[in-house]
Design a protein around this nucleic acid. Structure first.
Lengths: 169, 169
DNA sequence: TTGGAAAGTCAACAAGGCTGACATAAAATC
DNA sequence: GATTTTATGTCAGCCTTGTTGACTTTCCAA
């Protein structure tokens, strides 16, 4: 392992790159992610759903009419895994699956009114915490937060993220 | 839900608090967390362990001699869940469990040389990505990154994090 | 017309969460 | 000294969410 960033590297004094700093960042990610999912998890439990259902609903809400294949690529799970989740959401009438008009093999996914309601409840809870954190940290910190997260993504996922990122706003 | 931060709030123009900005932050967390765990996951698979083993080893490395109860509080899982993981780590001689000297009910946990080796392999992989992200984003972004994450934690977890945070450095 | 992509289904399995019940040893308290 | 509490471990069973593999149906496109 050798040094790995402790002390001057390449002539610059990159104190924020010490192993100790990196460890703190790693633990920050770990603990923060728990907070990040805590509020939706509580709501999901009441409705007898899990995180997988939340993720599916989030991205269907985000890109209405998206296909199963698109969703698979974004969520990074197997179709069998996603299918189980989608099946219950469709049975419970939170999601509607419409056969593609141009390509009838494809299924286009939409939230029903009922589904949109739950999605709203979940994302409001999640945004609530996010908003509080953003407000506490300030706009400059938020910019840095996003920069580091983007640099941390797998290239494939960064592509997915960037595509979505600017689509709406 | 009403507005929720879109447009001017309280006289200030808090553009970074719009629902759209918050959604981007939420997706950034989702995609980045996948990157965050990707490298260790690959290594763990080779060794037939899971993320749970990594987490346990990380915090035992971080606080050698910590007790089972301490670890439970940090990891936020049940003792049955943790025990299953610890048992295999002890069987495989990656972790050593020593009966407490002052309080013989307690077990103090340590990494063996073999355990320390795997921990090093895992954390080097994870730090590698972290270091690249930090370097790409720069020190100011890193400070913001940490600020937002800390503000996002559950208060209880923030306490755990802060306690660990300054312990070593 | 036929190959292959998209989607769905079934079966089986594993990791890692959970609850509840129970055992043991040791510490703490009455 | 007896009782209660604490720390840990363990057994059994359940759930969610991931996996692989095999197979079918539909239907677009070469």
């Amino acid at each position: 392992m050798a040094e790995g960033g402790v002390g001057p590297v390449g002539g610059e004094n990159l104190l924020f790159l010490t192993d100790e700093q990196l460890r703190k960042g790693i633990e920050a990610m770990f603990f923060a992610y728990r907070g990040f999912t805590a509020d939706p998890d509580r709501i999901l439990e009441r409705h007898d759903y899990g995180r997988a259902h939340h993720r599916a609903m989030h991205f269907i809400h985000r890109s209405p009419g998206t296909t199963v294949n698109n969703l698979l690529a974004i969520l990074g799970v197997t179709k069998q895994s996603l299918n189980r989740v989608l099946r219950t959401l469709i049975e419970d009438q939170l999601v509607e699956s419409r056969v593609g008009r141009r390509d009838k093999r494809e299924r286009h996914l939409f939230l029903t009114e009922k589904g949109a309601q739950l999605e709203r409840e979940l994302s409001e809870a999640q945004r609530g915490r996010m908003r509080a954190a953003y407000r506490a940290a300030g706009p400059q910190a938020v910019a840095g937060f996003r920069q580091v997260l983007e640099a941390m993504m797998e290239p494939e996922m960064r592509r997915q993220y960037m595509t979505l990122k600017d689509a709406g706003a």
